[in-house]
């Protein structure tokens, strides 16, 4: 099977049955949990702060449950209504929005203390329609510029994602830089084809926190 983002747009791929299947799959749950904890580690929030976070592509709330447990208040955006329905049924605490991040975010400047995103960015690399505003570079640009503005200075945003080529990584990092972000790519287990995980760690201002990634 090829990766889901190559088969259909997310709101189609994650239809009703796929959304429930994805969420109930214990292997998916475990992977998603591991990725979320690692993203939070890279986010490096000050321990004494009760922060307001944005979960980009929150899906059925698998990461959101962890944010709840960790004491964060959060809002989540996702383009797949079926996934959001499942999140509601699971009674996660975060505010949920049906939103296409490629259209840009509408949050006021400095709204969030940080953002995480698990397994979402690769979806932005596929054109949604033939319209020119739907081309991946346009969608990435709108997303990163509106995200940069929605984050506080200093703060961080951490994205785990599945690039299929170095060109894709290059497009994503250069677009993020143009939007004003610092930071870069962190690769975990670079030598294992199976365990290899790619994280885009973006900084607004100094990026907050003490330690550099």
């Amino acid at each position: 099977m090829s990766r889901p983002e190559l088969q259909a747009p997310p709101e189609i791929y994650y239809g009703d049955s796929e959304a429930v299947k994805y969420t109930k799959n214990t292997r998916n749950q475990q992977i998603q949990a591991d990725l979320t904890y690692r993203a939070l580690e890279l986010l490096n929030m000050p321990p004494d702060q009760s922060a307001f976070l944005l979960d980009i592509g929150c899906g059925s709330g698998l990461s959101g449950e962890i944010l709840d447990e960790e004491g964060y208040v959060w809002a989540g955006v996702d383009i797949a209504p079926s996934m959001l329905e499942v999140a509601l049924e699971r009674e996660v605490e975060g505010d949920l929005f049906l939103q296409d991040i490629g259209q840009g975010l509408g949050f006021r400047p400095g709204s969030f203390d940080g953002a995480i995103s698990i397994s979402v960015l690769q979806w932005l690399l596929n054109a949604e329609t033939s319209h020119h505003t739907s081309a991946p570079p346009h969608r990435l640009h709108r997303f990163f510029t509106t995200l940069h503005s929605a984050l506080r200075n200093p703060s961080r945003a951490v994205f785990q994602f599945y690039p299929t080529s170095d060109d894709q990584i290059q497009l994503i990092t250069s677009t993020a830089q143009k939007a004003g972000f610092g930071g870069g790519i962190v690769v975990d287990y670079p030598n294992s084809k199976k365990a290899r995980k790619v994280y885009l760690c973006l900084f607004v201002g100094g990026g907050g926190g003490q330690q550099q990634v």
């Binding site: 509601l88 949920l96 929005f97 049906l98 709108r142």
Partner: peptide, 15 residues
């Protein structure tokens, strides 16, 4: 609807 705001824009509303 059902607690979820629909923030999707149509093609001509996208910046």
């Amino acid at each position: 609807s059902n607690g979820i705001p629909n923030m999707l824009l149509s093609e001509h509303e996208i910046g």
